[in-house]
Nucleic acid binder design. Structure first.
Lengths: 200, 200
DNA sequence: ACCTGAACACCGTTCAAGT
DNA sequence: ACCTGAACACCGTTCAAGT
């Protein structure tokens, strides 16, 4: 008895649904998007959707984890690059742009609200977050040992502050419906400069 | 014809409902709290509730505005106090404590999610926020002129960064379900020190 | 003037029936 | 093995009827 007619199908269906959900959430947000709408967008029936996701919350959880994985990859690049400040500025630009426009800004807040209530999602996000903080802290220590920065705070604390600042700024931009990223990036860069105190 | 049997009744009903709603949101969060539960807690019927609030979202909007008004009052105290850093540390402690424990942490995120989607609430919060930033910036300028600090950034930018950092840290604490405020306050104080660079 | 609570509309989720 | 879509349960909101 063949277990899977097409072993790649489940993964394809999942991303098909996630794509549709992202589109809906972007337009109307998590609360106002209905399963029916997501199904219509994904060209699938409600019954089929629940074969691949446990609940509506489970869908936003998957989206949140994807976004974190992206942030992690960005930090990987920061760790690799020589100019720590430049890397951070690029990270900030990418982060602000990801959560830009009317829709995605709200998505960031939705993810947070969901995570604050769902312990499983919170735990999953936290693991990714710790990896991100760890990578940034490592990059800071490396630059510090190389003598190119003189951070104002211990590496881990500086990394935490930099990420908290980034997230706080992103949320404030969401509230203000700002679309212009350059000014925000400039401000973030300036904050990073004063936390990390590069030589020269 | 008497317009109001008791002119204070509407206000009393509103706070009675808000009190009940806060209690419910704290326990189960915005999404999972039902109007019926809020009504039971407030000892009032659904019909009566909708006489005082337009919708469920309208209730969280009122709670959000109350919280901002509190933050404003805290900043007023910071502006008054001589020790800017100490004032900020106290502000941070109060802020963290307000959004502490399992319930309220989520409430902060709920408010953000709601604001990101409801332009009217966003606008109302923004006005309050600008007042808060303005007050902090004024306090920074005053201390700067008095020669007690040498801020790393222009006053308004420093104020923005300090508030973004505070909000970012509060959300991260929410995700981690941290209850211990002292360590977070210490970290925030340290960040403020390095942004404001007080003399001595 | 203010309230009650049954009724309505809507939406997340399930499940019997199909291929 | 995978899907459909009608049915169910639940909850935000309204409104006719009461005092």
């Amino acid at each position: 008895m063949a277990r899977h007619a097409d072993p790649a199908l489940p993964e394809r269906r999942r991303s098909q649904i996630l794509e549709a959900a992202r589109e809906c959430f972007r337009e109307r947000g998590f609360r106002l998007s209905t399963i029916e709408e997501i199904c219509a967008e994904a060209r699938i029936s409600p019954g089929a959707l629940y074969r691949y996701f446990d609940s509506k919350a489970d869908i936003i959880a998957a989206i949140a984890l994807d976004a974190r994985a992206e942030a992690e990859a960005m930090l990987e690049r920061v760790n690799g690059s020589e100019g720590l400040i430049e890397g951070l500025a690029e990270l900030a630009r990418a982060f602000f742009e990801t959560f830009d426009g009317d829709g995605d800004a709200a998505l960031l807040a939705d993810i947070w609200a969901e995570a604050a209530r769902d312990p499983l999602l919170a735990k999953a996000l936290l693991i990714r977050d710790q990896i991100a903080v760890g990578r940034l802290a490592a990059a800071i220590e490396r630059a510090q040992r190389a003598g190119s920065i003189y951070p104002a705070l211990p590496a881990t604390e500086a990394a935490e502050a930099l990420i908290a600042g980034l997230e706080g700024m992103a949320l404030r931009r969401a509230l203000r419906r700002e679309n212009e990223t350059s000014e925000a990036v400039r401000r973030y860069r300036s904050l990073a400069l004063h936390i990390l105190k590069p030589k020269r």
